[in-house]
């Protein structure tokens, strides 16, 4: 476990793919790495609709959403961010992994994405980042009773 991550319970992460592409090798490898680091990973088939992702994040009460995009489906992520906001899920952290051109990475960060991981990213970096973000999400005041 990452010692910097301020987790109050096992981190829960949704690993998913939106849009049209179906290449899922990357998302499967990341999901397995997160599991092996002790995280609880909700895994979906590709082609999720954006409202469905928001509903799923709500039902599963996840801390982090990881969107894998190997074609151009990352272009939909700003719409996902709006949908999460609409559903009152602003505390959920979103990361994107896959092929994202440099000039479009900033658009994603501007839309509220916490971090974009590119091919060849260090798995330990991905896992550590997810744990850290999950800790932040768990401690968000909006989620306290």
């Amino acid at each position: 476990m990452n010692s910097e991550a301020n987790l109050t319970r096992p981190a829960k992460v949704l690993v998913t793919k939106i849009g049209l592409d179906g290449h899922d090798r990357g998302s499967r490898i990341v999901a397995a790495a997160l599991r092996d680091a002790g995280l609880e990973v909700v895994y979906t088939a590709p082609w999720q609709e954006i409202p469905t992702v928001a509903k799923l994040a709500m039902e599963e009460d996840v801390d982090v959403i990881g969107v894998s995009s190997l074609a151009t489906d990352h272009l939909l992520v700003p719409k996902l961010m709006k949908e999460l906001h609409k559903a009152g899920l602003d505390y959920v952290k979103v990361i994107v992994g896959g092929i994202v051109p440099d000039n479009e990475e900033q658009d994603l960060l501007d839309a509220g994405v916490a971090r974009v991981f590119h091919p060849g990213s260090d798995m330990a970096d991905i896992v550590g980042t997810v744990q850290m973000l999950a800790g932040e999400a768990q401690n968000d005041t909006a989620r306290q009773l």
Binding site: P10, A31, A37, V41, A45
Partner: peptide, 17 residues
């Protein structure tokens, strides 16, 4: 690791929305 992959809902995807 204590981690888990929760994949049961894949087969219930048609009702996800």
């Amino acid at each position: 690791s204590g981690g888990a992959i929760l994949g049961d809902r894949i087969r219930m995807a048609e009702h996800s929305h």
